[in-house]
Nucleic acid binder design. Structure first.
Lengths: 191, 191, 191, 191
DNA sequence: GATGAATGAGAGTTCATTCAT
DNA sequence: AATGAATGAACTCTCATTCAT
């Protein structure tokens, strides 16, 4: 099966990159880790760039539907419950897919080489936040002009919190209420 | 004057790195951009590593005191005014030092090779936030256990907002109240 | 066969070094002479140092046993016959392995960078001479105190003679008796 | 005085080369040791090559007359006394000019780059030996055909002995009789 | 003349990519 | 398809040489 080798290559790439950084994911390091020959990589991917972007595409293909499903599943809730539910599910997804999340965050604002900005995991999440915020504006909770800034701020806070927990090896789902309460009601009001 | 060439080299390094990523800041790219020969770089710095870290050290030496001054200048204010004043000054500093801020953010969660975590610009800011949050906890505004998470969330929100404005070429000082009000009182309460 | 390329590289290194000196044996000169690309050298050796020392190790691995065998084969002879037989075989070995002998002599008293003194061809020969001389002293032919000086003098005379013949493109085995007779009985007594 | 700077440069070159090898005698190392600027070297010598060969020429200009004088002073003696006297004086010269002798020996059979073979210190000595040997042949002590080989053998023995003593930090004039007696009468006959 | 910063050719090394097997 | 040795462009760094001051 073709997919098996492809997967082995992408898994190897991810493993090396998470362990030692993207630059350490050389062709031969990937091949060795994947247990195949260097030349084999080129039977499945056009070049190194192609492997890296395929990795991001593949992982996104796994995670994006999960995020989309979380967005969809919570879309009918009232605003506050929606934010809370979506973030809760998001953190659960992050916890499940730790190593790619770590890689995505590492890569996020680094050089633009890797990915067109649009198809990033973090960008997708940002878009859901913008969607949710537009809903909040539609409900007159705040002016529509604040939507982009609100989305980015919440996104940034979430990311910072998640990366911190990740680097400490701690769970992050328990932070949901703290984050959401702060966001909705300000500090000092969390349950 | 000796500093002139040193500055030209560091400026060139910064420019190339901001434009095309740190990896693109090769010795020859830096030399070309700085308008000097390759060998000249080695009259001023021991090696490429030395150029990069000198860049970070030099910029931090410029910006760190500004941040420290902002932290100091606002330290006697009541909590809310303090947060607002510090963030306002921080955004003004960010605006003034745009290109290095961009670089610092790019580098921030990239592989650890570049810098010891402690001496990062973003780390310094995070520490000020933790300090401020400890003050908030001391004033019984929230439990002390929330200090680290609060500091990280505010830091993340600020960074996301600032990087967004930066990438859009927009001013960011005007976001101060939006950010602070949201932070203190939750969304929908901003002036 | 893997050895083929390795050999080509070492042969090329030796050829360049003998022709133009060790410093002229640059990576690219070696590669060109060997008819391979620069990168290929690094598939077989860790670095330039590694090539050079592999050359010396490889050649010594060829020649050292020959010398040891000559030493052994002649060890039971009476002193004079022993000296004569050993030097005769040594000169035959020198003739067979001309280009490396030339290189070994060139390197011999050059800066110490190249090789640990002990594992040198010339050092090995010197040690055999010291051994033989100790035997001479044991037979009361001369005081034991003269052993080191005698060994060095004979070694120096042999080397000078051999290098001269080598540079003239002449045979050197025919010099055996001249050298040995002079050594044993002084000038004017040779057969 | 022009000669003062020239001398300082050559002395510096010699000192560095003896201490750390010829390759370590870089332009800047020489300049620093000589206490002058890099550019100054080029006011006195055309290039690095020029400094090195000037060093050899200068030292030879010092030592060659001493050797010539020794050759001349001993030229009227009978053969055996002549050899003994010349070698005795030669070793005294070697002792006096240790550092250059060390350098000359290091350079002797290394790459040909440095010097035309003819103007070498060792070559000059060899020529004196050939001269002396021709005298011995003229006196019917041995056939004239042996002159070149005898000269080289004696030269090699002398050099090996001298370099050994040099590297051990021992005096070498005391070896005169050992060397000469061995040479004239064979081993085991020395006083 | 003396200075030493600037220069750039050239050295060693890495690694993505190719291709004969 | 799979292999992995061969390739050479690109990178970092050194150092002899130049030249404005």
């Amino acid at each position: 099966m073709r997919g098996a080798v492809t997967d082995a290559i992408l898994d190897a790439t991810e493993a090396v990159a998470v362990e030692s950084g993207l630059e350490a994911a050389t062709i031969s390091a990937i091949a060795e880790r994947a247990g195949v020959a260097v030349g084999t990589l080129y039977n499945y991917f056009p070049d190194r760039e192609g492997i890296l972007s395929a990795l991001f595409v593949a992982r996104r293909a796994q995670i994006a539907p999960m995020i989309a499903a979380a967005a969809e599943a919570t879309s009918k809730l009232p605003f506050e419950a929606r934010v809370r539910a979506f973030i809760g599910q998001l953190l659960a997804i992050f916890e499940e897919k730790q190593s790619f999340v770590r890689l995505a965050a590492m890569t996020d604002q680094a050089s633009i080489k890797i990915k067109p900005r649009e198809s990033t995991l973090m960008t997708q999440i940002l878009q859901v936040f913008e969607h949710i915020m537009r809903d909040g504006a539609a409900r007159k909770l705040f002016p529509v002009s604040r939507v982009p800034a609100y989305a980015r701020m919440l996104h940034g806070a979430l990311k910072a919190l998640a990366m911190w927990r990740l680097s400490e090896g701690q769970a992050m789902t328990t932070d949901t209420d703290l984050l959401v309460d702060t966001w909705l009601h300000g500090i000092g009001k969390a349950g």
